[in-house]
Amino acid sequence: MTEHDDTVFADATVVAGTGEVMIEIEGVDKLFDDFQALRDINLRVGRQEVVVVIGPSGSGKSTLIRCINRLEKHDRGRIVVDGVELSDDIRAIQAIRRETGMVFQSFNLFPHLTVLENITLAPRHVRKMPRREADALAMELLERVQIPEQALKHPGQLSGGQQQRVAIARALAMQPKVMLFDEPTSALDPEMINEVLDVMKELAREGMTMIVVTHEMGFAKEVADRVVFMADGQIVEVGTPEHFFTRPSEERTKRFLSQIL
């Protein structure tokens, strides 16, 4: 799938997938009061590409992907998703949110609804899907994440790994074009991390455009088309996994990798 190319790719070019640009982030800054969380971010993500973002805590990785679906508002620069520019216009924002799915570190499943209702809530209310169709879609997705028998249970009755897989199914129910993952396995017990990573790897194999913020280097090596390293709110280095993990160019990257590998 990926070209084994050693050169460091400047952020503006895309690799793999179909070559079309799916997400464009240009000159983006983000300030929280006095703290600059994002500094002149330039990144392009192509259709069907899997980009993994790594970096120390406080580097701005979560802030970056939260800006893409407007959970945070960027202060400067442009963000364009599938041709729609992110602005203050609520219609643009809603259009982008419909096409992007997000999976959170703390799952954020709705505790007062069953698993099935969690998954069908958005398709029914936003895409106006009839109930039968929505239920069928939900069951199909539950099969994909391998827990169809949990459909009528409540989230509180599921294990962490199961809850996160339901969260992935819930995001997929909207049939998004892009999936955003914000440290999806960081809150899981070690024995449950793999079941979630397996689902994500399957998604990547099926050709979903994904941006994944994670600490799981194994996942990055195996599935990523590109790895982005961020520190102090800036993109320090970008490259293919091979380049990244064997021959990083920047000092900062080398220091980070030595600490975690």
Binding site: N69, R70, L71, Q94, R97, R98, T100, G101, M102, F104, S106, N108, L109, F110, P111, H112, L121, A122, H125, V126, A167, R170, A171, M174
Partner: peptide, 27 residues
Amino acid sequence: VPKGQNEAATALALSSGQRMRQVVLPQ
């Protein structure tokens, strides 16, 4: 109600009225 609930509903493109009625108020 944990902020994450509202965020998840927002990420699913529910309108603010739908978020309130379906997610926040019941909890």
